[in-house]
Design a binder for these strands. Sequence first.
DNA 1: GCAGTTACTACGACAGATGAAGTAATTTTG
DNA 2: CAAAATTACTTCATCTGTCGTAGTAACTGC
Lengths: 108, 108
Amino acid sequence: MISSDVIRGYNDTMILSLLLDGESYGYEISKRIRTLSEEKYIMKETTLYSAFTRLEKNGFIDSFFMDETFGKRRTYYRITPLGRAYYREKCEEWTLTQEVVSKFIREL
Amino acid sequence: MISSDVIRGYNDTMILSLLLDGESYGYEISKRIRTLSEEKYIMKETTLYSAFTRLEKNGFIDSFFMDETFGKRRTYYRITPLGRAYYREKCEEWTLTQEVVSKFIREL
DNA sequence: GCAGTTACTACGACAGATGAAGTAATTTTG
DNA sequence: CAAAATTACTTCATCTGTCGTAGTAACTGC
């Protein structure tokens, strides 16, 4: 189990990563993070939805509704070109972070 | 350059890691993080000192003074057994985090 | 028809990082 | 030798992101 404290810097990046595969919505993203991480990380609902708000405010994602005549209305999200650029940056930063943090890690 | 947002989950771990090499104090730790990371991460002073306070409160480090008859008085820190245990946990968590985050990272 | 799942939204609390500013002593440099 | 830089912190107020709690709403399976 991964605590939110250590992974929090990557919540936005994870969401964007999944949106690169196509538009999606909160509940689905949440499930996919859960299964992709093999239950090792479960993003809290409130964290996820507040991330959406932030990402949209920053222009990294767009939200829209699909015409669904049934079920509770979902808010769908789509990554923007700006979001892709941001994602790319974060991927590079991840490589750096791995290098740096690894210097402070030793298996005792 | 690594932003504090992405590495913040590892500030405490980095500090503890350096204290495993022996007792030290703020300014030195700060310098060592800077050089070890090859200037890729510079921990802000306030972040560092507030981390010391937190770590001590949690029983992960002890603080003390050396008898120095010169200079501004330094607060030295030493890792406790509890701190070592916590460090070990965080190292394991790092391995997990690497595995998980990597699934959301692709070089485009 | 009620429990469970899907799909959110609102709100308030809290922790950690930060900027700005200040203190104080020593060392370097012009 | 005085001014600037470096060492070594401390205080405080602010901001951002996460989280717990709670509530709304519709559909699905038994």
